[in-house]
């Protein structure tokens, strides 16, 4: 069992989302940085959809009442176990009785913790993701509070092997970690300052030419009102050249909508299923991680690419994740830790 000593600013249980129920108005939800979430699972031998913890801007603190295999990915919240810095993006075996503490995010905004077997969580419509609007799923349908506890599900055979190998490693300290890790170079949040790649949205042509120019030439600042539903941006207003009434229609992760005030909103995991604002652009899936790691005050820039290129980037990213999975399996089979 794991005790939550400090809950952090906003910590929820998430998985890869609740697909298939949007036609009933149910949000997809799930981890905002899905790549970090999936890799957290993959490096410790979990199913990539297993439930992880998503922490936001300010991390939590945990007391391990039993030993556990875990991994930390996403934004850097300077994790420490009993005061010793913990390396990220790799399996870590923490001993019984130790404390894992996180600070504020010094890089990125969201950090993921996975444990072998995944966290036990309330399932709702086939997903463990916390559905805040309805109060279902995850941990009682809400964010963690101080004093909560977490349990793990049964570990996979591969997780057991990783545990065996890490416990054989002779290390003086509160935890043991592998020498290998998943290269975080592949994770776009480390390319801060690089533009977020988008392609044209359905209503792109309804915007003034000058607005279309501003959108890719000016920087937009992330507003403090941003949350898991969307990133609210502030900057040069974006105006329609034709005032057209938009009929509500489906929106997705990364859809950039522009309400009447001209300030764009980038939709994230907890977005509503449909929207009635004009869609200026759509973020490429390969840059969703980047979206998940921006924080209030950050400046973001957008770069227009063709849809075909976005599709190519997505397939490339999926190939990389698949490669990670098989490379790790090989490492574990060969006993390299």
């Amino acid at each position: 069992m794991i005790e939550v000593l400090e809950a952090g600013l906003f910590t929820t249980i998430q998985d890869s989302g609740r697909a298939g129920y949007q036609k009933y108005g149910v949000s997809v939800g799930g981890a905002v940085d899905t790549v970090a979430h999936r890799l957290a699972n993959i490096v410790i031998g979990n199913d990539e959809n297993d439930a992880t913890l998503e922490m936001t801007l300010q991390g939590a603190a945990f007391h391990f009442r039993e030993a556990a295999l875990l991994s930390i990915t996403g934004g850097d919240m300077q994790p420490r176990i009993d005061g010793v810095p913990v390396p990220m993006w790799r399996p870590v075996y923490v001993h019984k009785g130790n404390e894992l503490r996180f600070g504020n995010a010094v890089k990125g905004a969201r950090t993921y913790i996975a444990v072998a077997g995944g966290f036990q969580a309330d399932e709702f419509l086939g997903s463990a993701s916390t559905y805040l609007q309805a109060g279902f799923g995850g941990h009682e349908g809400r964010a963690f509070q101080k004093g909560g506890t977490l349990e793990r599900n049964r570990s996979s055979a591969m997780s057991e092997r990783i545990v065996d190998q890490l416990t054989e490693k002779r290390i003086n300290g509160p935890f043991a970690a592998s020498d290998w890790w998943v290269s975080d170079m592949a994770v776009p949040m480390n390319n801060q300052g690089e533009a977020i790649r988008v392609f044209e949205g359905r209503h792109h042509h309804l915007f003034e030419e000058e607005s279309i120019r501003s959108f890719t030439e000016e920087a937009y600042q992330v507003d403090t009102k941003s949350d898991r539903m969307g990133i609210r941006l502030k900057g040069e207003p974006l105006n329609l050249s034709v005032k057209e009434e938009i009929i509500s229609e489906p929106v997705t992760f990364g859809t950039i909508q522009v309400p009447q005030n001209g300030q764009p909103i980038v939709l994230l995991a907890d977005r509503q299923t449909t929207g009635g604002y004009p869609k200026l652009a759509q973020v490429a899936s390969a840059d969703f991680s980047k979206l998940g790691q921006v924080k209030p005050g950050d400046k973001v820039r957008f770069m227009m690419i063709p849809h075909r290129e976005a599709e190519r980037l997505l397939l490339e990213q999926e190939q990389y994740i698949r490669w990670c999975r098989s490379a790790i399996r090989r490492k574990v089979e060969e006993g390299h830790i």
């Binding site: 697909a19 036609k23 009929i247 229609e249 449909t274 599709e311």
Partner: peptide, 21 residues
């Protein structure tokens, strides 16, 4: 097809790009 979402004027179709590839 992973999901279909009907709306007033059309239908959104979500698909598994990896499976198609």
């Amino acid at each position: 097809i992973t999901e279909m979402v009907p709306s007033y004027t059309g239908v959104a179709v979500y698909y598994d790009a990896m499976q198609l590839r």
